[in-house]
Simulated scan of single mutants.
Amino acid sequence: MNNTDEWQGKLQNISRLAQFNTWLDLEVVSATEGEVTLGMRWKKEMGQYNGFLHAGIQGALIDTACGFAAATLSGNVLASQFTVRCLRPAVGQSFRVVARVLKPGRQQIFTTAELYATDGGEEKLVATGDTLLVPVQT
């Protein structure tokens, strides 16, 4: 599959299968082979005790975006390991995560992601992360 619109539609349909992604109201903004951008609007239920985006949600966004980026190259994948680095408080009305495949493989796929928050029209990098994914047969 080469068409960006086809990947975007396919991944959006896959995302809707996960109730968690539906609760997040996750949107597949763009998708090409090896790269995916997801978007999400802020909900107060996603906040931690100071009102910032919870680190668990940040991790979920990074994990999901990396998994989708890997899926564009190898089909179904599962995360074997992922890391999140929170760089600053994640405050914003919306969030955007960009993930790309660093190295695809038959047994392991290495990916990286950057999470941005948009607050008052200004976008800031708030977290980075990476995942190690494994292709799976369903």
Rank of each mutant, 00 (worst) to 15 (best):
M1C: 07
M1K: 14
M1R: 14
N2W: 07
N3A: 10
T4F: 04
D5W: 02
D5V: 04
E6I: 15
E6A: 13
E6K: 13
W7E: 00
Q8K: 15
Q8D: 00
Q8I: 05
K10V: 11
Q12E: 13
N13V: 08
I14Y: 10
I14V: 13
A18W: 09
Q19K: 13
Q19E: 11
Q19W: 06
F20E: 04
T22I: 03
W23L: 14
L24W: 09
D25H: 13
E27L: 05
V28Y: 05
V28S: 03
V29A: 08
V29D: 06
S30Q: 14
E35N: 04
V36A: 08
V36T: 12
M40H: 13
W42Y: 13
K43Y: 03
K44W: 03
K44V: 07
E45G: 04
E45A: 07
G47R: 14
N50K: 07
N50D: 02
N50G: 01
G51F: 07
G51H: 12
F52L: 10
G56L: 08
G56C: 05
I57R: 10
Q58H: 05
Q58V: 11
D63K: 11
D63L: 06
D63Q: 11
D63G: 08
T64W: 01
C66Q: 11
G67S: 12
G67I: 00
A69L: 06
A70N: 06
A71M: 15
A71D: 02
A71Q: 06
T72D: 02
L73C: 12
N76W: 10
N76C: 04
L78E: 05
L78N: 07
L78C: 02
A79N: 14
A79D: 10
Q81V: 11
F82D: 02
F82H: 06
T83S: 12
T83E: 10
T83Y: 01
V84P: 01
C86T: 15
R88K: 14
V91F: 03
G92E: 00
S94Y: 02
S94G: 04
S94K: 14
V97N: 00
V98W: 03
L102G: 11
K103L: 07
K103I: 03
R106M: 02
R106W: 00
R106Y: 01
Q107R: 15
Q107W: 01
I109L: 08
F110E: 08
T111W: 04
A113N: 02
L115E: 00
Y116S: 03
A117V: 10
A117D: 05
T118N: 12
T118R: 12
D119K: 09
G120V: 09
G120M: 06
G120W: 08
E122N: 09
E122M: 08
K124E: 07
K124T: 11
L125A: 09
V126T: 02
G129R: 01
D130W: 06
L132T: 15
L133C: 11
V134K: 15
P135G: 01
P135H: 05
V136C: 03
T138E: 13
